[in-house]
C-alpha cells in the first residue's frame, strides 16, 4: 500500500506536483497515467525519498520510505533516468545493490536469469541497448523479491519485442499478487496491464478508480436512444435532470441519468423507443478528455470532438 497525502513539489516557480492525495491498493497493478510533464516521475521520486516534497508526505506500507531499513526487500523501483554506472558489468551492478541490502549473492544470478540477461552478465552496462538496460533496471528492482514495485515508464523507447516482454512481465507480477505502480503517458498501454488507474494532469489528481470506473466517469460515456418522439422524451428527461443532446436520425445522447431510469421513464410515458444502448468511451478518449485541460504540451493532445456530432462511443 502506497499513500500520498497532499504531496506537493515545487521547482522554482514550477509546481510539478500539486497537493496530490492518492492511495495505491495492495495486490494490484495500478496504472499511473498522465501526459508528459504531469508530475509522474517527480511523484515517484518523492515516494522513494529521492526528492523531498515541498509539503505533504508519502508513505509505503504505513512508513516513510527512509524509515525502511533495507528497502529493496520491500520496494523495488525502476526510475525513468538510467541509474547504472556504464563501466560496471551487469553482475557488478547487481552485486553492490544486493550487498547494500544484505541480499544473498545467488539472487543476483536468479534475477539475471529472470530478465534474460545471464548471457551478458559479465558485459559492461554501458554497451547495453535501451531494452537490455531496461531489463537490467527491472532485474535490480526484483533483487530483493519485493512485494511492491514502482516502475516509471518501463516501456518507453523499447522496441516491440521489449514492449511485449515488459507487458508480460507486468502481468506476471499481477498474477503473483504484487503491488505495482507503473507510470505511462499512454492509456492504451495501461489498459492492457492495469487493474486500477490513477490519472494526473499538471500535478493534480484527475481521476482514480478501476479502469471501468475511469472510463464510465468520462463524459464521452453516455446512453444512446433512438425514438420517433424526440421532443416528448427530451422534455421528460430534462425534467429528470438529464443532459441531453440531439443527433441525426432521431437519436438522443443522454448523460447523468442511468440507462435503467431512461427505460423506465420511457415506459411510464409511453414513449416508443427504437434503441436504448450504453455507449462507453474508448480508453484513449476518456484519457484525453480527462487530461486535455492540464497537459503541459497541450498541442500533443487533441480533445475529442464535441458530443453532439460525435460518432464516438460506438461499440468497441
Amino acid at each position: 500500500m502506497i499513500e500520498t497525502t497532499e504531496l506537493t513539489k515545487r521547482y522554482g516557480d514550477k509546481l510539478a506536483v500539486d497537493h496530490l492525495t492518492m492511495s495505491i491498493p495492495s495486490g494490484q497493478v495500478t496504472g499511473f497515467l498522465g501526459p508528459n510533464g504531469a508530475g509522474k516521475s517527480t511523484t515517484m521520486r518523492m515516494i522513494l525519498d529521492l526528492d523531498s516534497p515541498t509539503s505533504g508526505s508519502a508513505k509505503v506500507n504505513g512508513r516513510r520510505y527512509r524509515d525502511i531499513r533495507f528497502p529493496l526487500h520491500e520496494v523495488g523501483s525502476l526510475l525513468e533516468a538510467k541509474s547504472v554506472h556504464p563501466a560496471r558489468t551487469a553482475r557488478g551492478h547487481l552485486q553492490w545493490l544486493a550487498d547494500s541490502n544484505r541480499i544473498p549473492r545467488k539472487r543476483v544470478d536468479e534475477v539475471l536469469e529472470l530478465v534474460g540477461l545471464s548471457a551478458v552478465a559479465k558485459k559492461r552496462a554501458g554497451g547495453f541497448s535501451l531494452g537490455m538496460g531496461q531489463r537490467l533496471g527491472i532485474a535490480a528492482a526484483m533483487l530483493g523479491d519485493p512485494q511492491t514495485l514502482l516502475l516509471d515508464e518501463p516501456v518507453n523507447g523499447l522496441d516491440p519485442e521489449g514492449i511485449v516482454w515488459v507487458r508480460s512481465f507486468l502481468r506476471s507480477l499481477a498474477a503473483e499478487g504484487r503491488t505495482v505502480l507503473v507510470s505511462s503517458h499512454l492509456m492504451s498501454e495501461m489498459a492492457l496491464t492495469a487493474d486500477h488507474l490513477i490519472v494526473i494532469g499538471a500535478g493534480r489528481l484527475i481521476s482514480q478508480g478501476s479502469v471501468a470506473d475511469v472510463v464510465a466517469g468520462s463524459s464521452s460515456s453516455h446512453v444512446l436512444v433512438r425514438t420517433p418522439e424526440v421532443s416528448r422524451l427530451m422534455s421528460v428527461l430534462t425534467a429528470e435532470g438529464a443532459e441531453v443532446s440531439t443527433d441525426v436520425d432521431h437519436a438522443l445522447r443522454i448523460r447523468k441519468v442511468s440507462i435503467e431510469r431512461i427505460g423506465q421513464l420511457a415506459a411510464d410515458n409511453a414513449v416508443v423507443l427504437h434503441e436504448l444502448s450504453p455507449q462507453a468511451a474508448s480508453l484513449e478518449q476518456a484519457f484525453m478528455e480527462l487530461t486535455h485541460d492540464s497537459g503541459e504540451y497541450q498541442t500533443e493532445l487533441k480533445p475529442p470532438p464535441p458530443p453532439s456530432t460525435t460518432s464516438a462511443g460506438g461499440p468497441n
Partner: peptide, 8 residues
C-alpha cells in the same frame, strides 16, 4: 538514485 533508493 539507485544508491539512495537502496539506502535512504
Amino acid at each position: 538514485r539507485a544508491t539512495f533508493a537502496a539506502t535512504p
